[in-house]
């Protein structure tokens, strides 16, 4: 029962978020700040994690599938498709739910408990739209960029780790990367990252916006937002995979 009322108030909040902004120029300024804070500051960690994961996936493929019957181009191909289909969208989104989601929940939650949101409302500002809309746009905009960066870095990671292990040469690996490329996989994953990006911004924002109490509750909302967002990401991964691959 509580789930339904939560879903109801989530959509009510979204309705307020997407109503017309007061002053577009200020929203632009907010948007630029959010893109910097939520997006640009995530580039480094995404790149590092992806290089390592690309390397690890390549090594795993190399050691677990090496047999004389197995063509070596499968290593590059396997790494590429793992990155594109699941790692660079789903796993990365789970990570972003931890990094960006907890940040959004605690920022908005502490604004709630220190009456800054009341203060905005009292000035006649639509606080929901002012605080949340720029974050949604920023995260949804940056998600596909992070996806592309991640795939790219993951392939580089494989390119470093694969030939170093000696099982696959640079030429074989690169050959694999170019073999049997399905452009639809990329479209599919970009659709997923857009949906996940929306969840990463809105679920923590909703939980933060409705905090009642003090610092303790803000911490709790932050934890809850990571858990809920992660579950929702996996749930929507399942749904979207079923819908788009049918």
């Amino acid at each position: 029962m509580r789930v339904f009322s939560e879903i109801g108030s989530y959509f009510l909040l979204m309705y307020r978020v997407f109503s017309r902004p007061e002053k577009t120029r200020i929203y632009w300024r907010q948007l630029v700040l959010e893109i910097e804070k939520l997006g640009i500051h995530s580039l480094g960690i995404v790149a590092i994690i992806s290089v390592f994961m690309g390397g690890i996936i390549t090594l795993q493929l190399t050691y677990n599938t090496s047999s004389p019957l197995m063509p070596t181009y499968l290593i590059g191909l396997g790494n590429r498709d793992t990155l594109i289909l699941e790692f660079s969208c789903t796993v990365l989104s789970l990570m972003m739910a931890g990094k960006v989601g907890s940040n959004i929940a605690s920022e908005i939650g502490s604004m709630r408990v220190t009456e800054q949101i009341d203060s905005l409302e009292l000035m006649g500002v639509n606080s929901a739209s002012f605080l949340i809309l720029p974050k949604i746009i920023a995260v949804v905009f940056i998600s596909p960029i992070l996806f592309i960066l991640s795939v790219f870095c993951g392939i580089i990671g494989g390119l470093i780790a694969g030939p170093l292990s000696g099982v696959v040469t640079v030429a074989e690996y690169m050959g694999g990367i170019k073999t049997a490329f399905v452009p639809f996989f990329v479209t599919f994953s970009i659709i997923k990252t857009l949906v996940f990006g929306f969840l990463i911004a809105t679920v923590p924002a909703y939980l933060g916006y409705n905090v009642q109490g003090g610092a303790l509750e803000v911490g709790r909302a932050s934890t809850r937002s990571v858990v809920s967002t992660s579950i929702l990401i996996l749930f929507f991964d399942l749904i979207l995979t079923q819908l788009l691959f049918k």
């Binding site: 220190t114 009456e115 800054q116 203060s119 409302e121 009292l122 000035m123 006649g124 500002v125």
Partner: peptide, 19 residues
């Protein structure tokens, strides 16, 4: 309500400055 509130000013007990 938004229009009416633009005619108001409020000092909250804790200040409520935007940090």
């Amino acid at each position: 309500l938004k229009k009416l509130r633009q005619e108001m000013g409020m000092v909250f007990q804790g200040g409520a400055l935007f940090d």
